[in-house]
C-alpha cells in the first residue's frame, strides 16, 4: 500500500460545510440572482443617499419664515436666487475652488515623488518606513491633526520658539489662507500617495530603463514617459483630493481663524446657526452640483478610464 501523504486540508472541510450551509439558505437555482444579492447592501445605501438628496432638494425650495421658524408651504427658488446673488457665497465658493485646486496641485506634486520612491526603492526597509510614515498620520483624525498644527504653528509653538532662538519675532503662521492650504495638503498627502502608488506600480521599471537607454536623462524620462503613463493615477488622485478639499469643513474652521470659510462651513452655518434648512439645502445642492460638474468635466476630457474603469493595459 502506498503511503497516503495527502490529507484533505481542514480549511477545505470548513469551506465545504459553509457551501452546504449556503446551499440551504440560497439554493443553487437562485444563483443567477447572487450578484444582485451581493450588490443589494450597496444599492440600498446609494438609494438612501438619493432619497436624502431628494429631501434636501425639496427643502431647498422652501424659504424660512422667521416669525414662526417654519419652512414656507409654497415652492420657490428664492434660496437659489439668494445664494447666486450673494457676494459672500460667491466669495466662499471661489475660495473653496481655489483652495481645492491649489491643494490638488501641491498634494500631487508632493505625493508623486513619495509614491515613486515607495514603489521603486529596492530596500524593503525603506518601503516599510515610507508606508508607516504615510499611515501614521492617516490614523490620526483630521480634527486632531488640525489641533496639532495649532500647537506647532502657534505664537508660542515650536516653530516660533525656534525662530525666537535666532532672534525672529513671532510670526502669525495660523488663521490665514496659506495655513488652511498647508493643513489640507498635509491631510490629503496619504490619499494622493495611496492613489498614485498602484498607477506607478503598473508602469514596468523596464519602461523607465528603456527611456534611459533611448537617451532620456532621469528627469526627462519622468517628464516624458512616467508622468504621462501615470496620468490615470494622477487624475484619479486629483479627483479624490479635489473633491475632498472642496467639501472640507474642519481645516478652514480650525486653521482659518474664522475668516476662511469654505462652502461646507457656510452650509453648517445655515443649518445650525441660523436654522435655515432651506438656504442650507440650496447651498448643499449647489456644492454637489459644482463637484459633480468638475468631476464630470474631467471625465469628459480624460475619459472614465482614469479611474481604471475599463482601462486598457
Amino acid at each position: 500500500m502506498p503511503d497516503r501523504s495527502f490529507r484533505y486540508p481542514l480549511r477545505w472541510h470548513v469551506m465545504d460545510a459553509l457551501e452546504r450551509g449556503a446551499d440551504i439558505l440560497w439554493p443553487a437555482t437562485f444563483s443567477r440572482m447572487t450578484g444582485w444579492l451581493l450588490a443589494a447592501p450597496a444599492i440600498l445605501l446609494v438609494g438612501l443617499l438619493v432619497l436624502g438628496l431628494i429631501q434636501i432638494g425639496d427643502a431647498s425650495m422652501h424659504v424660512l419664515d422667521t416669525s414662526t421658524f417654519r419652512m414656507s408651504e409654497a415652492y420657490t427658488l428664492a434660496n437659489y436666487a439668494d445664494a447666486f446673488t450673494s457676494a459672500v457665497y460667491f466669495k466662499v465658493a471661489w475660495r473653496s475652488l481655489l483652495a481645492a485646486a491649489l491643494t490638488t496641485a501641491l498634494t500631487l506634486a508632493f505625493a508623486f515623488p513619495y509614491a515613486y520612491a515607495m514603489v521603486r526603492t529596492r530596500s524593503a526597509t525603506v518601503r516599510k518606513a515610507l508606508l508607516i510614515a504615510l499611515f501614521l498620520p492617516f490614523f490620526i483624525g483630521q480634527v486632531v491633526r488640525a489641533y496639532g498644527w495649532l500647537i506647532i504653528l502657534g505664537n508660542n509653538g515650536i516653530v516660533n520658539d525656534m525662530l525666537g532662538v535666532v532672534g525672529v519675532e513671532p510670526i502669525r503662521l495660523l488663521f490665514n489662507f496659506p495655513a488652511v492650504i498647508f493643513g489640507l495638503v498635509q491631510y490629503m498627502l496619504p490619499f494622493g500617495v495611496l492613489m498614485l502608488a498602484p498607477a506607478l506600480t503598473a508602469i514596468p521599471e523596464e519602461t523607465e530603463i528603456a527611456a534611459g537607454s533611448l537617451g532620456a536623462s532621469w528627469p526627462r524620462a519622468i517628464w516624458h514617459v512616467i508622468l504621462p503613463m501615470a496620468r490615470p493615477g494622477l487624475i484619479g488622485a486629483g479627483i479624490v483630493v479635489f473633491t475632498l478639499s472642496l467639501t472640507d469643513f474642519a481645516m478652514p474652521a480650525i486653521l482659518g481663524g474664522g475668516s476662511q470659510d469654505f462652502i461646507a462651513n457656510a452650509i453648517y452655518d445655515q443649518f445650525f446657526r441660523t436654522a435655515d434648512q432651506g438656504l442650507g439645502s440650496a447651498l448643499a445642492l449647489m456644492l454637489v452640483a459644482l463637484g459633480s460638474l468638475i468631476v464630470g468635466a474631467v471625465f469628459t476630457l480624460f475619459g472614465a478610464g482614469t479611474l481604471a474603469l475599463g482601462a486598457r493595459k
Partner: peptide, 9 residues
Amino acid sequence: FSRFKEIMQ
C-alpha cells in the same frame, strides 16, 4: 449673521 459674514469673508 450674513451681513457680518459677508464683511468678514
